[in-house]
Nucleic acid binder design. Sequence first.
DNA 1: ATGATGCTTCCAGCTAGTGGAAGGTCAAGG
DNA 2: CCTTGACCTTCCACTAGCTGGAAGCATCAT
Lengths: 146, 146
Amino acid sequence: MSSTTNGLNIGQAATASGLPAKTIRYYEDIGLIAPQRDSNGYRSFSEAEIHRLAFLNRARGLGFSIEDCRALVSLYDDASRASEDVKRLAAEHLDRIDARIAELQEMRATVAGLVESCAGDGRPDCPILDDLAAGPLCRHAPRRRN
Amino acid sequence: MSSTTNGLNIGQAATASGLPAKTIRYYEDIGLIAPQRDSNGYRSFSEAEIHRLAFLNRARGLGFSIEDCRALVSLYDDASRASEDVKRLAAEHLDRIDARIAELQEMRATVAGLVESCAGDGRPDCPILDDLAAGPLCRHAPRRRN
DNA sequence: ATGATGCTTCCAGCTAGTGGAAGGTCAAGG
DNA sequence: CCTTGACCTTCCACTAGCTGGAAGCATCAT
């Protein structure tokens, strides 16, 4: 190791936080974290930064967007926050999850019906293709971003 | 209109199929459709191609990926297909939908619990942030592509 | 000295489009 | 005849959230 040796390098930070090194570099790129550098140019992560990375990992795992995460760590850092603001963020996220689940359940119902209706043998007749071909020529709701 | 005038131009194709003109151009780009051109360079869509666009719209609306759609239209075009192949595609898609729903429901449960636990007032104490900060430093399951 | 890791940067690509600029075409109105 | 506006064309950039890989130092064990 080089001169200053109290922090962890990126590989250790990855192991400790559960995030891949590549992702940690990316998070630095977009300004979610700003580790020190050792004299050799290696990133050096403090305990607090490892914590922050784990926080981000957890928040992302719960489906929060990067922008949500930015807001969440900012609130986490702010001792004078109002829990109201945190709750609102989470509640909005919950609504988006619910909307997405509803959407997927609708798809699921339709696709399940189609799968069930198809013989799935060697013959060309297929109610799935028939449905797709005959389906309503209407909707264009923009496809999900997630 | 210009010389050859039996097909629809892209605007009419968009209206008839339900897809935005931009998306139709994109689908041509990636080889999902290959309309003729009029002498002025405008795309000219036949009835069959409008149908194909509507088919794609419907399939995308059910959540099939572009690659799935490519396979589906190919099967649709192939009079000697086996419905087995179509069914397998749809069944695999169904499995992915189910997996995604399960994942979202797990997130939903956790996030709902957090939202409920938070007072949401003007004070800084927040069980949501506490959970994120204390959360398991383990998992790294790669995030959803969709 | 050498080879194997591990670190650095930067560039490209993934999904499935969407937005916008610059320019050609077409039909109608003045 | 000329202009205006609504089309159409191409091309390039951007979105989210990474991931993979190449080229080039750093470090450590042998």
